[in-house]
Design a binder for these strands. Structure first.
Lengths: 194, 194
DNA sequence: ACTAGATGTTAAACTAGTTTAACTTGATTT
DNA sequence: AAATCAAGTTAAACTAGTTTAACATCTAGT
């Protein structure tokens, strides 16, 4: 597959010349993963920042009791990486695993400075994407504090209607920070209400 | 006050020439606030991104029940802004208020593109700062899901030992996402344990 | 068609954290 | 010195969400 979705995505932020597009094409790795494959495992260093061309991934953390907590569910046109591990090149706290067969366009840590130097617009792009990510993370922290589990579920359903259909319900529960049993109960309640 | 703390902070990320430092000095606003003053109010557009030279602020959200939730406590050498409002120039969801007399060096939205154009290193700086912020926010989401209130309090105390002394306990509770009564109980338990 | 494994449901017992409300302590003002 | 106000404590009643465990449903593979 071509990186066309990435080029289209980039065009929402900055305008690249044909030469810059070619440069990008040459410096980005397109990689395919099968459902279930890991893009990153807790403890390894995150060497790439990945843009999803097609497919779906979860980023999750295994806590000291062995429980899985999903930080992020990503589909087409989203980025995924353990950013702390990527920027510091330290062992990752998080895992990234494909929930479907997935194709990604990957920026490598090893040449990202070179890419930014040659095409400063891409640094601007990454800054903007990261700013949006931070804004979203802050709002998520607030939602987790100020909304009940039911309210968070309804927000999730409204905001990401397409993601819910693609993944098992227990992963939605994990993303919402509740048990699968409690989400099941919430869905039961909602079914009665309508 | 001079922007020396900002220049020192920047030197940890990028190296500015004397000319670039002068340019920065001319394009940053140094502003003083008294304890209790608002830097930003919910509903207003966030026009500046502020680096704290001296003092302490809280960024918080008032939910539909009138309850205050603290997203961020910032002291010297930290940044504070409602980043969603700043990048989109949309009404802010958050308030920023000074908990002590505070001095800030402020980047204005109106000339930030100009600053980045003249000194691309500052765009690099802001990208890196934002990346760290995002990494920290993701880890905070995980802590809120995988740790008990007591564990979160101990983590806070260990990680930001100096902040706790500067602010009232009920704000620590709000930052941790619990009631002041429950934090009081936790502290009682910890006092017995030692 | 049958089995196994993964996903989802239900319900009862439980617990972490909230709510309410009364009280204490300390700082500030008059 | 009294009065007021903000901050912190304590305890009982409560509730949102967890835990455990048994059962139901759905696939995919043989």
């Amino acid at each position: 597959m071509d990186i066309q979705p990435l080029l289209y995505y980039i065009s929402n932020y900055v305008t690249l010349t044909p030469e810059e597009e070619d440069f990008l094409r040459e410096h980005v790795i397109v990689r395919k993963y099968l459902k279930g494959q890991y893009v990153l495992q807790q403890g390894d260093v995150c060497k790439v920042s990945s843009f999803i061309l097609k497919g779906c991934t979860k980023m999750f953390y295994i806590d000291k009791d062995g429980q899985e907590h999903i930080i992020m569910l990503s589909v087409e046109d989203w980025w995924t990486s353990d950013i702390a591990s990527f920027i510091e090149q330290q062992p990752a706290d998080f895992n990234i695993q494909c929930l479907e067969d997935t194709e990604m366009a990957q920026f490598q840590y090893s040449n990202i400075d070179h890419i930014f130097e040659k095409v400063p617009k891409l640094e601007r792009l990454l800054r903007k994407v990261t700013e949006r990510g931070l804004a979203a993370a802050q709002k998520r922290i607030i939602r987790n504090f100020s909304m009940t589990a039911k309210e968070r579920y309804l927000y999730f359903r409204k905001t990401y209607p397409k993601i819910e259909q693609r993944i098992p319900q227990y992963m939605v529960a994990s993303y919402l920070g509740i048990t699968k049993e409690f989400l099941s109960k919430i869905k039961g309640q909602l079914a009665l209400e309508d």
